[in-house]
Computed example of a mutant assay.
Amino acid sequence: MGVFRIRVFILYIYFCCSFLYSVPNVSGQDNKCFNCTELVNCKASQYFLKYVDSADKNKVVLKTPADKADPILEKCLDEGFRINDTLKGTLCSGSTDGLCHAIGQATGSQSVLFSHCGNCYKECDCYNQNGIDRTEGAIILTMSLAAFYTLIQ
């Protein structure tokens, strides 16, 4: 009977951890320019825009004279544009500094932040610019799945 209780407890822990990692951060309702270390040397033209989620396509619009500057997104988005709604996915953008930037819904979750940065690393073609093949994400995912599988057994 004790082995059964331990397995149920391990299963309970597994589902709790899975739930915590799969629930998005609901407190962030604004867009944020993320400070991605992966994108430090990744170049993109000033007018580069790549939408990872097609639902975000009409959310970047030209600024009007009445629009105020947004200090949060100023460094990541070309100065002639603004975002008029909260993004569902990742927006990869070039700006006046000539680098690629990741913009998305504000979050405190490291896994979501890693996802935004990884999406732009791919979309801005940083693989070819830096000559580095990034496989850490796949390795971490494989190790996590193996650990969870081991706990269930």
Rank of each mutant, 00 (worst) to 15 (best):
F48G: 00
L49I: 04
K50P: 02
V52C: 00
S54D: 15
A55V: 00
A55I: 00
D56A: 02
K57T: 10
K57N: 07
K59Y: 07
K59D: 03
V61I: 07
V61A: 01
L62H: 11
L62P: 09
K63D: 07
K63I: 03
T64I: 07
T64E: 14
T64Q: 14
P65E: 14
P65S: 13
A66M: 13
A66I: 14
D67N: 14
D67C: 09
K68G: 05
K68W: 07
A69T: 15
A69N: 15
D70A: 07
P71D: 14
I72M: 08
L73E: 11
E74A: 15
K75C: 06
C76S: 12
L77H: 06
D78P: 04
E79M: 10
G80Q: 15
N84F: 01
D85W: 02
D85N: 04
T86F: 05
L87Q: 00
L87S: 06
K88C: 04
K88G: 03
L91T: 03
G94A: 12
G94N: 13
S95K: 05
T96F: 03
T96Q: 09
D97Y: 05
G98V: 08
C100T: 06
A102E: 13
A102G: 03
I103W: 02
I103G: 04
Q105S: 10
Q105I: 08
T107E: 09
T107Y: 04
T107S: 03
T107W: 07
G108H: 11
G108D: 12
Q110H: 12
Q110P: 13
F114Y: 14
F114G: 14
F114V: 05
S115W: 14
S115E: 12
H116N: 13
C117Y: 13
C117T: 03
G118P: 01
N119R: 04
C120A: 13
E123C: 04
D125P: 00
C126T: 06
C126N: 10
Y127R: 01
N130H: 03
G131V: 07
R134N: 12
G137F: 00
A138F: 08
I139S: 00
I139R: 07
L141Q: 05
L145Q: 03
A146K: 04
A147P: 00
A147V: 14
Y149P: 00
